[in-house]
């Protein structure tokens, strides 16, 4: 699964990190670091929850 991240929308609130810490981490300057742009299928539930939790709708899963 591939991820599309709109960094312009992201405000660094970290809700995605709470759902999928293996994939997302907010940095100390408030920007988002994607630790894995092609997360494996085992992480699908977490990544879907992360996308749904983002208040600014900055995250999307691109189906391959």
């Amino acid at each position: 699964m591939r991820l599309a991240i709109d960094y312009d929308k992201c405000t660094g609130l970290g809700l995605c990190e709470a759902e999928a810490p293996e994939v997302f981490e907010v940095q100390d300057d408030g920007t988002l670091l994607c630790l894995d742009e092609n997360p494996s299928e085992e992480l699908r539930a977490e990544v879907e929850a992360a996308c749904a939790s983002c208040p600014t709708e900055a995250l999307r899963i691109l189906e391959d």
């Binding site: 660094g12 609130l13 970290g14 809700l15 990190e17 709470a18 810490p21 981490e25 907010v26 940095q27 100390d28 408030g30």
Partner: peptide, 12 residues
């Protein structure tokens, strides 16, 4: 305050 990288780990 201004530690966004720690807060979610603390939440966990």
């Amino acid at each position: 305050i201004d530690r966004p990288t720690q807060i979610m780990k603390l939440r966990k």
